[in-house]
C-alpha cells in the first residue's frame, strides 16, 4: 500500500489545523512497519486514514497499484483492519468470544460451519483456549481481550492490519506476548503490519522498518539500509539506548 502526500486538516477556532501534513509512506506485502511518535503526533490519524475510517483531506492512497477512495468499497474494506488501543471499547458486550470472532465472517457471508472452523482456528492461534469460547470480553483480562480483538481483525485474512497502540494499557510482559503473537500470525498469513506505538524499544524488537512521526509530519526513518532521523527522533534513540544501559548494570 502506498500513501502519497496525505494530509488531514480540520478547523480549530477558525484556523486550519493540520493533524497530519504531507505524509508519504508505503508498506510492502508481509512487511512489519513501525510508526513511532509521542501522543498527539498524528500517528493514530494516519492509521485510521489508511484503513478507511477517516477520509484524508488531501492526497491519494493506493492499494496494490490501484487508487482507493474514501469510503472504501465493500471488497476493499475487509482487507484493511485495525486493532484498537482499548479492547473494551471495540468489543460488543453482548456476544461471547466465539461469536465475536465469527461476526466478521458471518457479515461477509461465510457459511455457518466454515465460519465456526475459521474462528476456532484463529482463537487457538492467538493463544486462547476452549474455556474462553463461551465467555464475554469483560470476564477476561486486558491481555486476553486484546487477543480477542486481534483474532477478530485477522479472521478475514486481511492484507494489512494496523495495531494502534495495542500495548499501551498492558504491562510490559503482556505487551511482549501480544507482539509475539502478532509476529507469528503475520508470518503465517503474510499479513503486513503497521505497528503504531510511542515505545521505540518495542517497535525496534519487531519491526523491519520504523517511521518516526512528530507534529503531523514524518520526521525520520530507520531500516536496515537507511537511517534518516530528525533531531528529536535521534534523541529518542539515544535516550532509549541510555536507559537500557542503566538497567544492564
Amino acid at each position: 500500500m502506498e500513501a502519497r502526500d496525505i494530509s488531514r486538516v480540520f478547523m480549530k477556532s477558525g484556523k486550519n489545523f493540520y493533524a497530519i501534513e504531507n505524509v508519504n509512506l508505503f508498506i510492502r506485502s508481509g512487511e512489519f512497519l513501525g510508526l513511532v511518535g509521542p501522543s498527539g503526533s498524528g500517528k493514530t490519524t494516519i492509521g485510521r486514514i489508511l484503513v478507511g475510517l477517516l477520509p484524508a483531506t488531501r492526497g491519494k492512497i493506493l492499494l496494490e497499484g490501484n487508487e482507493i477512495c474514501f469510503p472504501f468499497s465493500k471488497k476493499v474494506r475487509p482487507m484493511l483492519q485495525l486493532v484498537f488501543q482499548e479492547p473494551a471499547s471495540s468489543l460488543s458486550p453482548r456476544l461471547n468470544i466465539l461469536d465475536l470472532v465469527r461476526e466478521p465472517l458471518i457479515l461477509n457471508r461465510f457459511p455457518a460451519d466454515k465460519s465456526k472452523d475459521m474462528a476456532l482456528k484463529l482463537i487457538y492461534e492467538v493463544g486462547l483456549g476452549e474455556e474462553h469460547l463461551n465467555r464475554y470480553y469483560w470476564e477476561l483480562s486486558g491481555g486476553e481481550s486484546q487477543r480477542v480483538a486481534l483474532a477478530r481483525a485477522m479472521v478475514l485474512r486481511p492484507k494489512i492490519v494496523v495495531l494502534d497502540e495495542v500495548s499501551s494499557g498492558l504491562d510490559p510482559i503482556t505487551a511482549i506476548e501480544i507482539s509475539n503473537s502478532v509476529k507469528k500470525l503475520s508470518g503465517r498469513y503474510g499479513t503486513s503490519i503497521i505497528f503504531i506505538t510511542h515505545d521505540l524499544g518495542l517497535a525496534w524488537s519487531y519491526c523491519e522498518r520504523i517511521l518516526f512521526i512528530s507534529h503531523g509530519k514524518i520526521s525520520g526513518e530507520i531500516s536496515e539500509k537507511e537511517k534518516r532521523l530528525s533531531p528529536q527522533a535521534r534523541k529518542m534513540v539515544e535516550v532509549t539506548i541510555k536507559r537500557q544501559s542503566i538497567l544492564s548494570s
Binding site: P172, I173, G201, W204, S223, E224, V237, R243, Q244
Partner: peptide, 16 residues
Amino acid sequence: REFLESVPRINDGNLK
C-alpha cells in the same frame, strides 16, 4: 528477570 527481559533493547541504534 521477566521484567528485565521485557525491556526492549535497540542495541547500538542500528536496526537488526
